[in-house]
Computed example of a mutant assay.
Amino acid sequence: MNEQLVFQLCISVLIPIYSGLPGLWIAQIMRKTNSSFFYSVKNFEMTKNIGFYKRLRLDLFTYFVKNTFFRHCNTKIKITKKPSINEADQLLNEITISELCHLFGFIFVLIFQIGTLILDLYTMFFCSLLFNTIFNIYPIFLQECNKLRLRNFLKILQQ
């Protein structure tokens, strides 16, 4: 019984962690083929209210990402100097790719979670739900917040 529980916990952690890889490939293909879905996600705004993200405690999540080994995961999303409009648009593309990566990863894990419910593996379901939130939902919110901040910056640049 103990070995089975450890196995379920390991799978519940590993699936959400690696779920973004197929999403990354799909997002890159969508960008290279100029998919309309890619551009609709790029232009999508969940909310214009930065307070929404503060209520989710996204600042703690951002601190965690910046100060752990996760900072090495996507080094393309970084501003070191005042970017030009073209550089900011390129950064917006990278943010959109990251957002799609986590969105497809979330969907993949959601399908896995439905399977765990069908098989009555409730421990596996709740653990994968927790880790799907940490590794996919919060990064989606983080990228949405980054897009909002970058768009506000672009408005200032264009004036």
Rank of each mutant, 00 (worst) to 15 (best):
N152I: 01
L117H: 09
Y18C: 10
R55D: 10
Q158R: 13
F125N: 10
T33Q: 11
I118A: 14
N34G: 08
T123L: 15
K48L: 13
H102F: 02
Q143D: 15
I97M: 08
I97N: 05
Y53S: 07
C127P: 01
S98E: 09
M30D: 02
M1W: 06
M124N: 12
L110S: 13
K54R: 15
G115L: 12
W25G: 10
I107P: 07
I29Y: 06
R31F: 12
I134S: 00
L21I: 12
E94P: 01
Q159A: 08
T116V: 10
F108G: 09
L24H: 07
T96N: 05
S36Y: 03
K81R: 07
M46A: 11
L5P: 01
T123F: 15
R151P: 09
C127E: 08
T47H: 09
I85F: 05
I95G: 02
L150H: 04
F125K: 06
L129R: 02
L56N: 08
N2Q: 10
E99T: 01
C73Q: 07
L5Q: 13
K66R: 13
I79F: 04
F69A: 13
N49Y: 09
I95L: 13
T62G: 12
N74W: 05
N2W: 08
K48F: 09
K76A: 09
A27F: 05
S36T: 11
L119R: 14
E144Q: 15
T47D: 11
I140H: 04
L60I: 11
F135D: 08
Q4H: 03
L9C: 06
C101W: 00
L121M: 13
K147V: 03
C101F: 00
C101D: 10
L150G: 04
K54I: 04
F108P: 01
C127L: 14
I11C: 05
I50M: 12
G115N: 14
T133Y: 15
E144V: 00
V41C: 13
N74L: 03
F131V: 02
Y122T: 14
L150R: 02
L14S: 10
A88N: 08
T68R: 07
L117R: 12
Q90M: 04
I107F: 13
T62Y: 07
F131D: 10
F61W: 15
R71V: 07
K42Y: 06
N136W: 01
V13F: 15
N74R: 03
L58R: 04
I29V: 11
I137P: 11
L117F: 12
F108D: 06
P22K: 02
P16A: 00
T123M: 14
F69W: 13
M46V: 04
R149F: 03
F64P: 08
K54N: 14
K54C: 05
L103W: 05
C73L: 11
I26M: 10
F64S: 10
G51D: 15
N74G: 06
T96F: 02
L121V: 02
F125M: 08
M124A: 14
F108Q: 07
T68F: 07
F112M: 07
L154Q: 15
N146S: 13
T47C: 06
K48M: 09
E45I: 02
